[in-house]
């Protein structure tokens, strides 16, 4: 097997673009939030400063091997997810490593980082980390359910599991998007989207008022830097999947930027107006609202 250097270059470039985009975008989102409440808010480049500051910490501790590897798993999960999904439709190179697997790979690789992070945080021995993990895992099991159903529905609709093919089928006008051809599945998926973006009302995992900040309580310095990087990268990688599946994908980086931002804002908008759910409440919520919509989606296909 020969190494495809250009592809690796493009992958690195994709990574670079998306990380920077994510840095700016998340800062922008915070800034918008601040402006809404009448503040100036953080500087648009604040994320970079925080990142460097964390890397520049002089003293560090480690709780053990898994603790050390936790952030590595986490970031690998984010980077891998991004690279396994075609970023820009119609470009062989910006499809990165999507030749390795289809939609199923993307769906399951989401858990890679979660697992590693959970293991790492748990090795720190901090009970708050463990509590955060139980909350996160409990919530994600049901939150992902509507997505799984929606994905099943649209892969039945398009009769393929290949993401590129699904995007291809949505080309040729906005009304070809799954959003319009299959609104029920889209709605179901959006339940999952809002539920897994770690924003209110589903952010009890990191509830600072009760369990400092949940799983990453013990993380700092470069560990935290890796996780911060992932924090800006991972939601975008996830949003890209939603964009590809439901919103027609992106044919160029500009469209990419706009669509990712718009989709991302859905969870933000929901978040700013809803107070936090407890775990069992959010489980019940997804079973009561998300699940029926998902079921409807697979029945209607």
């Amino acid at each position: 097997m020969s190494i495809d250097w250009p592809r690796i270059g493009y992958a690195a470039l994709t990574l670079f673009i998306v990380i920077n985009y994510g840095m700016i975008m998340t800062a922008l989102v915070r800034k918008i939030g601040a402006r809404v409440s009448g503040r100036y808010g953080i500087r648009i480049y604040q994320n970079y400063i925080d990142l460097v500051k964390n890397i520049a910490l002089r003293s560090k501790i480690t709780h053990g091997v898994m603790y050390y590897l936790g952030p590595v798993f986490r970031l690998t999960g984010g980077v891998g997810l991004l690279l396994f999904v075609p970023t820009i439709y119609g470009s062989a190179m910006w499809s990165n490593f999507s030749f390795a697997g289809d939609l199923v790979l993307a769906l399951y690789f989401v858990f890679f980082g979660t697992l590693g992070m959970a293991l790492g945080a748990a090795e720190s021995g901090h009970p708050y980390s463990a509590i955060g993990i139980t909350r996160g895992l409990s919530q994600v099991t049901v939150a992902e359910l509507p997505l799984a159903l929606a994905v099943f529905a649209i892969s039945l609709q398009y009769q393929t599991l290949n993401i590129t093919d699904i995007v291809a089928a949505q080309q040729g006008g906005i009304f070809n998007w799954t959003l319009f051809t299959n609104p029920v599945a889209t709605l179901a998926a959006l339940f999952a989207f809002v539920g897994t973006m770690m924003r209110s009302p589903f952010d009890v995992v990191i509830a600072p008022q009760e369990i400092p900040i949940g799983p990453p309580t013990e993380y700092h310095s470069s560990y935290l830097a890796l996780m911060q990087t992932n924090r800006v990268l991972f939601p975008i990688a996830k949003t890209v999947i939603y964009m590809n599946l439901f919103f027609g994908g992106a044919t160029n980086w500009f469209e990419f930027a706009i669509k990712v931002f718009a989709i991302y804002m859905i969870s933000v908008l929901v978040g700013v107006v809803h107070p936090r759910f407890r775990v069992e409440q959010s489980i019940t919520f997804f079973l009561k609202w998300g699940l029926p919509v998902g079921v409807l989606a697979i029945l209607l296909v």
């Binding site: 390795a100 009769q159 393929t160």
Partner: peptide, 16 residues
């Protein structure tokens, strides 16, 4: 419906 390349997956994840 789809495809799966175990070697590539292992490699990509391993390298990252």
């Amino acid at each position: 419906f789809g495809y799966w390349n175990p070697v590539a997956i292992m490699l990509v994840i391993g390298v990252i």
